[in-house]
Amino acid sequence: MTRGFLEKGVLAGLVFMTGFAVFIFALVLAEVAVRGGGALNAGFFLEEARDFGAAGGVRYQMEGTLLLMVGAAALGLPLALAGALFQTEYVDAPGLKRGLRLLVYSMNGVPTILFGLLGYLFFGITLGAGVSWLTGVLILAIMILPTIQVSVQEAIEALPEQYREAAGALGLSRWQVVRSIVLPHCLYGIVTGTLLGLARAAGETAAILFTATAFSGARFPEAMSDPVPTLQTHILVLAQEALNPRTIENAWGAGLVLLCLVFSLIALSLVFRGRLSMEFER
């Protein structure tokens, strides 16, 4: 009898703790939505920031964030795809396969600030790209590469064995297998990975902090050697100012916009991943 009582207690405790965790995140969302919601209106999306962020909107910041993440994904995707195919299709030695896999996972763990610093040293100084959109794109591309690659790799590995057996029976070459079986069937994996990579790039601040962005005076870049304003760094600067309530509201507003952007990308990726698993369950 007491045991049943104890168990109910423990279970209630577990549920309570889970509920508390959910509550924390509900609080996080509510806080951002309430504090940032007031700043959102058409002008916030269409106007440029004025008075050091106290007035106007975040038009160029949004464009900058989009430019950086799209550039990074466009550059990171072919590299990630090649990495995934190389590992799954072109390497046969299991030891090498394991090693490469661990390398990708390790790369995924590298603190982003290090990508920023070393990336700036290499691309910005050694290759002469300076503080620019280009440097930011290159750094972010490397940063999101493992995110995309892991996703693609998982999709390829989820490919049912029969497909390959059938291909073997038909005597297809590796290239033919890749072109007619692997690529078409892991399309959802590619899309999912790219979306997650975009989300990761959009949420990143430390790596682009002093390598790619500008606080004031920058608009839509005319060349790749121009720095861009971004939502992330804009929030960082505004967050350190606490006296002007308009500035603070705009910081939260920009945070809300960024959060919505990242959430929609991840939500989309979840939808595509759902498609992926459905395909193989059929």
């Binding site: 466009a74 072919p78 790209a129 280009l134 060349a223 050697s225």
Partner: peptide, 21 residues
Amino acid sequence: SGFFLAALLCHAASTQAAPAA
């Protein structure tokens, strides 16, 4: 993406030629 990459690199090379516009 490959096209984009190529374009990017070409552009990078061209902007590098004139560092301080």
